[in-house]
Write a protein that binds this DNA or RNA. Structure first.
Lengths: 187, 187
DNA sequence: AGCCTTGTTGAGCAATGCTCAACAGCGTGA
DNA sequence: TCACGCTGTTGAGCATTGCTCAACAAGGCT
C-alpha cells in the first residue's frame, strides 16, 4: 500500500476509535490489528503515540472546517448565517465525534493546543473576511465562536423531540448575537 | 497519615504534575514516589488511574469556583463584574493550570464531561441568581461564560507589556456583552 | 492477651509504548 | 543477468506502567 493510502487508513481508524474512548485507553496494538499490520509499521508512520493522536485531531479539524465552509458568492450576512447553520448541524449530527476530537484541549499538551488554535483561527478569519470586521475586533469574533459552540453543544444535548428552540431560531440568535457583540465593542 | 490528609496530599501532587504534562505522560509511580509511598497505597485511595485523574480535575474545578465567588452583598451588576474580574485574573495568573485542568474536555471520557458540566453549571447558576435571569435565558448565560473564557484566554496569552486592552476594559466589555446577549434573546 | 480495623507494603502479572535489525519485493543501471 | 538500493514491512525484545493480591504493623477496644 502506498504511503499516503496507509496514512489515510490509519487516521481513519484512529478517528473512529477515538470517538469511543480517550487516547489513554486506545492501544496502538488495537489500531495495528484493525489495519492488519504489525505494530512496528505503525511506528514507522507515526514515530510516537502522541504524533498519531495529533494527526488524528488535525484530520478531524480539517473535516470540520471543510464541512462548514460557506459559499463566497452569498451576501456577507448570509455567509455567516450559513457557517453557523453548518456548524450547528455538524455538531448535532456527530456530537460525540465533535466533543471527543475537536472541542477543548485539556491535557497540557502544547502541540495539541496549537492544533486547536489553528482551527479556531481559520473559522474566525472566515467571518472577519466575510463581514469585513476591523482587525481589533477579531478577538470578539473569536470569542463569539466559543459562544456559538457552547450554544450548539447544549442545544444538541437535549433530545430532538423535547427541543424548545428550532435550529433556525438558534442560528438566528447566534448571528444576531454577533452583531450585538460587535456593537458592544464599538461603543 | 489520615485518610483525608493523604488524599489531599495526593491530589495536590496530581494537580502540580498535571499542569506540566498530560495524563498519559504521568506515571503513578511518579506520584507515589513524590508522596513517599508505595504504588500499592496509591491504588488503595484511587482504584484506577482514571479515578485519580477525575479527582484531580474536580479539585481544580472546586478551586476555580472558590476563587471566583463574588460577595452576595454587592449589587447584581457589581456581582457579575466581580465574578468576571476574578475569573479573568485567575486565568491570567495561572494560565497553564487553567488550560490543562479546567478548560475543555476532549478525551471522550463521559465521567470527565460530567465534571466540566457541573463546574459551568455552577458558574451559570451564580449569574442567573445574581441577576434574576429568566430560566429560559440560562443557556445564554452559559454560552456567555464560554465567550468570557475565550476572551480571557486570548487576552492572557499576549504578554502583559504588549496588551492593547486593560483588564478593566475587558471586564467591562464582558459584562456589557452579557447585557447585549440577553437583550438579543429577549427580542 | 486476643482481635479487629486501618494504613501500608512489595512482589508479581499482563499490557503496551517503543527500538532495532533484518527481510521481501521491485525497479534501475551496469 | 546480477548487483544495488529504495520502500513498505515484520517480529523479537526491552522497559515502563497500570493494576492485583496476600500479608504486615500499629493502635484501639473488649
Amino acid at each position: 500500500m502506498s504511503r499516503d493510502d496507509r496514512r489515510r487508513q490509519l487516521l481513519g481508524i484512529g478517528l473512529s476509535k477515538l470517538v469511543e474512548k480517550p487516547i489513554q485507553d486506545l492501544s496502538l496494538d488495537e489500531v495495528a490489528a484493525e489495519a492488519g499490520i504489525s505494530r512496528g509499521l505503525l511506528f514507522h508512520y507515526f514515530p510516537t503515540k502522541r504524533d498519531f493522536h495529533r494527526a488524528c485531531i488535525e484530520a478531524a479539524g480539517r473535516r470540520i472546517l471543510r464541512n462548514t465552509r460557506a459559499d463566497d458568492a452569498l451576501a456577507p450576512d448570509a455567509q455567516v448565517a450559513e457557517m453557523v447553520r453548518l456548524f450547528v448541524e455538524q455538531i448535532d449530527r456527530r456530537r460525540d465525534f465533535y466533543l471527543s476530537l475537536v472541542h477543548g484541549t485539556g491535557s497540557a499538551d502544547v502541540s495539541l493546543v496549537e492544533v486547536y488554535d489553528a482551527i479556531w483561527a481559520e473559522a474566525t478569519d472566515r467571518v472577519v473576511a466575510a463581514l469585513g470586521v476591523a482587525p481589533e475586533q477579531a478577538r470578539v469574533v473569536h470569542a463569539w465562536w466559543a459562544y456559538v459552540e457552547d450554544h450548539a453543544l447544549t442545544w444538541s444535548a437535549e433530545p430532538p423531540a423535547r427541543r424548545t428552540t428550532s435550529e433556525a431560531a438558534l442560528v438566528a440568535h447566534c448571528t444576531d448575537a454577533l452583531a450585538a457583540l460587535l456593537a458592544v465593542g464599538r461603543r
